[in-house]
Structures are given as structure tokens and as C-alpha cells.
């Protein structure tokens, strides 16, 4: 985003101007605190011992930093009856997210390309009908999906989850690539056709290399969406095949024994870390995805 230019407009610089400027920074600062405080509290809590949590307050810094909670959240916290920490579930999430993102992005790219650069009668109708899939509340497909996964023998498995995320991610990845390819001149494709390239030749040699930014945005978006998903995970997997979001919720809501807030917070941060990392490293693309998501709703 570029800074708006009319920055230089001459304004009267008086006391009022300076006061407004101070107020402006004060408000911005208060909101920075508002957004950062929960992260700080999570962090601080996760580094405290349970005793310190009981005696201190939310925002007090840990007097004695301990990583016990982190170790426990990672390796030995109980999720239901199993006490191996989040580690196996992180692995589930990775096994789910990588193929689901790859497949839905690849299919979205081909689909978006075919629908924009090889427009055939009905292409727009097909797109509109597919796009609708991005808007539906998924509750409306939960029941039949559960039965279908059962019929396919994928019930309660990570593979089943990959299928679900691919199918319902497709509408969005298609939308993404379609929007991108709409901006690519038809002339390029026409020229390649005249040069004798076919459907897949043009796709792999000309269109795909151009689409790199769209691929990055889509991959990041899909990764965040699928990693953070809870609904499909909780509806279609059981116990050992849970993705990490479901496991986190189970850790937090395990009612047996003492409530270990420090372990809960460490588990929450561990769960959030991959997407936060992506956000910090590729924030620009993440924001672009959000902006494109505005079309999706």
C-alpha cells in the first residue's frame, strides 16, 4: 500500500494541531495494547508455574521463567485419555494441510485458467455455480459428508479430511486464480496459440510462471484456513486422527485433575505458531489474500 500523496497540504500548525497529533498517537497506542495484551498474557502465563499463576495477576511478569508448561503441552499433556501432548496432532495437521493445500491450489489454478483463457459457452455459469460453494455455511453439508466419508471408508481419517478441505477449498482457489487470470491479457494466450502451443503447454510454460504471486497468496490463504479449521476436524475425525485445533480444545476442556492454565496457554501458542510465523514472514501476501477474500465474503 502506498502512502496517499496529499500529505503535503498546507494546514495551520497551531497548538490544536499538536494536541490532535498527540491524541492520534495515544489512540493508536491504546489499540496496540488492546491487540497485543492477549498475546503477552498468553506468553507470560505459559512461562509461569501454577503457583505463580495463583498468586500473581494476568499481566505480572513471571518471576521465575519455566518451560515446564511448554514441554508438557508439547509432549505429555492429556488429550482425552491419551497423554502424549500436542506433538502427534501437530503431525496430523501437517499431514492434512500439505496435500490439501497443494491439491486445492493446483486444481484451482487449472480451473481458473480454463474458465478465463479458454472461455467456452457456459463458463461463466459454471464459475458462478462453483463460487457459491465458498459462501455456504458448512453445517449444511456436514451430515451428508459424514455419510459419504463412511461409504468411502475415509471416516475418521486424515485422508478424509484432506478430501473435505480440497473439495470446499476449490471454490475459493478457483476464484483467486480466476481473478488473477482476468488481469492477464488474452493476447498473450492468443499469441501462444498461434505459435502452436496447446492447452497444457500454454498453462505450464506461459501462464503458470506469471501466476507466481497468485500462487503464493493462495497457498498462504489456504494454509491459514485449513490449519485453523475446527469444524471439519471435530466433525470428521476421532481421537488419534484429530488435527491440532481439535486437540487444543480437548486439552483446554479436559475436566480431570487440576486446571493447568500455563499448559493451556503454551498449547495455544504452539497451535498458533505456524500461522503466526507465516503472517510475520509473508504478511504482505496474507493481507492481499484478505483483500481478495473480501470478494468471497
Amino acid at each position: 500500500m502506498t502512502q496517499t500523496a496529499p500529505a503535503g497540504i498546507v494546514r495551520r500548525k497551531g497548538l490544536r494541531h499538536r494536541l490532535m497529533r498527540i491524541l492520534l498517537f495515544a489512540v493508536l497506542g491504546v489499540f496496540c495494547l488492546y491487540y497485543l495484551l492477549p498475546l503477552f498474557i498468553m506468553m507470560a502465563t505459559s512461562l509461569k508455574s501454577l503457583d505463580e499463576i495463583r498468586t500473581g495477576t494476568l499481566v505480572s511478569l513471571p518471576r521465575q521463567i519455566t518451560f515446564d508448561a511448554w514441554l508438557k503441552a508439547w509432549g505429555s499433556a492429556c488429550v482425552g485419555v491419551r497423554c502424549d501432548g500436542l506433538k502427534p496432532y501437530i503431525w496430523n495437521s501437517v499431514l492434512m494441510v500439505v496435500p490439501a493445500v497443494a491439491i486445492s491450489t493446483a486444481l484451482g489454478a487449472v480451473n481458473g485458467y480454463a474458465l478465463t483463457k479458454w472461455r467456452f459457452p457456459g463458463a461463466n455459469t459454471i464459475f458462478a455455480l462453483m463460487l457459491f460453494g465458498a459462501f455456504i455455511p458448512f453445517q449444511v453439508v456436514l451430515l451428508p459428508m459424514a455419510r459419504t466419508l463412511g461409504v468411502l471408508g475415509l471416516a475418521g481419517s486424515v485422508s478424509g479430511l484432506i478430501l473435505v478441505h480440497t473439495v470446499y477449498g476449490l471454490a475459493f482457489t478457483t476464484l483467486f486464480f480466476r481473478n488473477f487470470f482476468m488481469g492477464v491479457s488474452d493476447g498473450i494466450v492468443q499469441a501462444a496459440k498461434i505459435d502452436g502451443a496447446g492447452f497444457f503447454g500454454i498453462f505450464s510454460q506461459i501462464v503458470l510462471p506469471m501466476a507466481l504471486p497468485a500462487i503464493v497468496v493462495t497457498v498462504i490463504w489456504q494454509f491459514t484456513q485449513i490449519w485453523n479449521d475446527f469444524l471439519f476436524g471435530v466433525a470428521f475425525t476421532v481421537g488419534d486422527s484429530n488435527p491440532v485445533t481439535v486437540a487444543l480444545n480437548n486439552v483446554v476442556n479436559t475436566s480431570t485433575g487440576v486446571k493447568e492454565y500455563n499448559v493451556d496457554m503454551a498449547a495455544a501458542i504452539i497451535t498458533a505458531l505456524p500461522t503466526l510465523l507465516v503472517y510475520v514472514l509473508a504478511g504482505k501476501y496474507f493481507v492481499r489474500g484478505l483483500a481478495a477474500g473480501a470478494v468471497k465474503g
Binding site: W227, F230, T245, L248, V252, M265, A268
Partner: peptide, 18 residues
């Protein structure tokens, strides 16, 4: 301002619950 959007609602819920 924008980082909470990268979090799962489950993480957000867990944090605010505490």
C-alpha cells in the same frame, strides 16, 4: 492490528477464556 486474523478462533477462544 491485523495479527489476530492469522489465529485460529480456537486459540482466540482459549486465550480470552483465560
Amino acid at each position: 492490528y491485523l495479527y489476530p486474523m492469522a489465529l485460529s478462533f480456537i486459540v482466540t477462544g482459549t486465550a480470552w477464556k483465560w
